[in-house]
Design a protein around this nucleic acid. Structure first.
Ligand SMILES: NC(=O)c1ccc[n+]([C@@H]2O[C@H](COP(=O)([O-])OP(=O)(O)OC[C@H]3O[C@@H](n4cnc5c(N)ncnc54)[C@H](O)[C@@H]3O)[C@@H](O)[C@H]2O)c1
Ligand SMILES: NC(=O)c1ccc[n+]([C@@H]2O[C@H](COP(=O)([O-])OP(=O)(O)OC[C@H]3O[C@@H](n4cnc5c(N)ncnc54)[C@H](O)[C@@H]3O)[C@@H](O)[C@H]2O)c1
Lengths: 237, 237
DNA sequence: CGGGCTTTGTGAACGTGTGCACGAATGCCT
DNA sequence: AGGCATTCGTGCACACGTTCACAAAGCCCG
């Protein structure tokens, strides 16, 4: 396997973890944390799989990417597993985020305690609308978007959240990248174009609903369902 | 807890569209709609791929599941493609949704126009907290959760949105299913257990942020290589 | 201390998704 | 009409993800 030659002295077992696994680790982590709080200190892959709604073999394979931290015949020590997953996900310290767009959604996000609770405190909120600047959301004052670079620098922000209308999302992304942010969570229904190396994840409510719609329509498919007003509609989907 | 597994009746399967494709069709649809509004009436797979941030061959393969609606040497007729995708996704008619939980997030969702604009009008909002009942959000009056069955029936709701705290999410899901809802969009950070045949999609903010955290932590491990300033843009999904 | 029971860790088979490469179809131009 | 430039549709190979199945590794108990 062609590996990157580490310039760093001691090799810290930096295997690459498959994307599918990375997206499940947070789920395991939450479940394990809950179990730990409830006094459970050992858990089998079967039980964890049940709680996570996945296959037990998948759980074991996922966890095996972290190393061999289970005990055969017994299971996994909850506290230790929590520690290992947190370490692997980079959750050993906080990651302040900056929210761009103090509208409907931005306000909900800012007011949501679960953010900082999980290690992602709101380091700042910015908006382009002067009338929004100065208002306080979730204990954080909204500042003008021109102050973005300062906020990113002083608060050492790596993660930006885009909560602007779709038309402004690319602009927001450009500003975030210029300010030094290297990961973006995008709530706007827009495909962003960013430089290589910038990680973008999209949360698109409409897409989710339309996927559900597809399945609903499919369930109804047994009975042929002609829709009133047939013919192509020019749509604003 | 039995989860949804493979192994369905093969005879009922008329042309099934791969999940990965289904999740991209809404993206194509939005882009095509925009292009249509801008007066574009024909588009190549290459152009659509560029706008969607994906590979052109993937676009063609995706669209081929709908049938052969392109013209070789020319491209796809935008209006017709919009019509076909809408039909396949079941967007030829509205799908009213019911929101459970009129808190921070529920209010943002209810006040968000993009919902009904895209064919998912808010058919109702319910909460268990009496003090929330009666308030009006986005033109819809919040009702008590006990009225859920009635709302689902009269408004013919198939899709439920869970915006309650995690601890109440399973209860909300149970009530939705009992009321007759067959698709659920879950914003609570909880794995839901539902009967077979009920479609569940999860939107978990914390998971998304933790995935970003993983990548940030990973970048920090390989310090030396700085990103070339003003480098080329690549549309990475 | 050894046999039996449980559960992990992983090789291998299988399934799904992606992207290349190219034949086939179509429009346009001479 | 025929040739040429495009662009679709898809077979194929490969990468990635999931699941099965089982040996290896540990604990318990007599
Ligand atoms: N509200 C929801 O429940 C919801 C749900 C799903 C998706 N979304 C998406 O989230 C985004 C925001 O939705 P919303 O309801 O909060 O919209 P909104 O209009 O209430 O808020 C948008 C905010 O962004 C600000 N803004 C505009 N251009 C900007 C720019 N260039 N830089 C910085 N700030 C800028 C505006 O001043 C405004 O305050 C939209 O893209 C929407 O599609 C919202
Ligand atoms: N606010 C956000 O920006 C945000 C972001 C991501 C995820 N979430 C998730 O969304 C969910 C809601 O968040 P929120 O900030 O709106 O919380 P919230 O506490 O503001 O609102 C929750 C609402 O649900 C109601 N409720 C409680 N139990 C109920 C039940 N059994 N049936 C019906 N209603 C019930 C409560 O009365 C309350 O009105 C949480 O699970 C949260 O983790 C919120």
């Amino acid at each position: 396997m062609p590996n990157v030659v580490g310039g760093m002295a001691p090799d810290r077992n930096r295997r690459r973890i498959p994307d599918a696994t990375v997206s499940r680790l947070p789920v395991y982590l939450r479940i394990l944390s809950e179990q730990g709080d409830e006094g459970v200190d050992s858990i089998s892959s079967e039980r964890l799989a049940e709680l996570a709604g996945v296959n037990a073999a998948k759980v074991r394979k996922d966890l095996s990417y972290l190393g061999s931290y289970g005990t055969r015949g017994v299971g996994y020590e909850v506290a230790y597993l929590v520690y290992q997953i947190r370490r692997e996900l980079g959750l050993t310290h906080d990651w302040p985020v900056v929210i761009v767009g103090a509208g409907n959604l931005g306000q909900a996000l800012a007011g949501y305690g679960g953010f900082s609770e999980r290690g992602f405190p709101v380091g700042g909120i910015v908006d382009i609308d002067e009338s929004k600047v100065g208002t306080v959301l979730g204990g954080v004052r909204v500042r003008h978007i021109d102050e973005l670079p300062q906020i990113v620098q002083t608060k050492r922000v790596n993660i930006g959240v885009i909560a602007t209308p779709g038309a402004a999302a690319q602009d927001a992304a450009d500003r975030l990248v210029r300010a030094g942010v290297t990961s973006i969570l995008n709530f706007a229904p827009t495909v962003l174009s960013v430089p290589r190396g910038i990680e973008v994840r999209k949360v698109d409510l409409a897409v989710e609903l339309q996927i559900l719609s597809y399945h609903e329509q499919r369930k109804a498919g047994a009975t042929v369902h002609a829709v009133p007003g047939g013919g192509p509609r020019s749509a604003t989907a």
